[in-house]
Amino acid sequence: MIAYIMCFILFLVGLYGVITRRNLIKIAVSLSIMEISTFLFFTLIGYIDGGVAPIVDPTDPVKVYVDPLPQALVLTAIVIGLATTAMLMAVIIRLYRKYGTFDIREIKNLRG
């Protein structure tokens, strides 16, 4: 059970970063940390002691396999995470070119 709680503490660290930081890059980094902890939690649920990776060997039918369903869900989520992070970075670089800073409070003040 310790692994589940450590995994959630990693999520909380990301949440702390999102709430307290004012730098846009730091916020993006915190979001990706929260994403990573979610992937880890899904994979932890499907693990079985003594299981092997879910690749069927037709010559040896009696084997314990790890649950393939959470792995399939995480597989698509990782690629989507890359695309959304890239989109966040595109927004950030446009904001930096316009205002010349990463600080969200200064951006708010500059808008007037």
């Binding site: 690629v79 890359l82 695309a83 890239a86 970075m89 595109a90 670089i93």
Partner: peptide
């Protein structure tokens, strides 16, 4: 599809 879309994201950053 995955290869094309990720490479397009990278190329658009370079073009920008």
């Amino acid at each position: 599809e995955v290869a094309a879309s990720i490479f397009i994201i990278f190329l658009s950053l370079i073009i920008f």
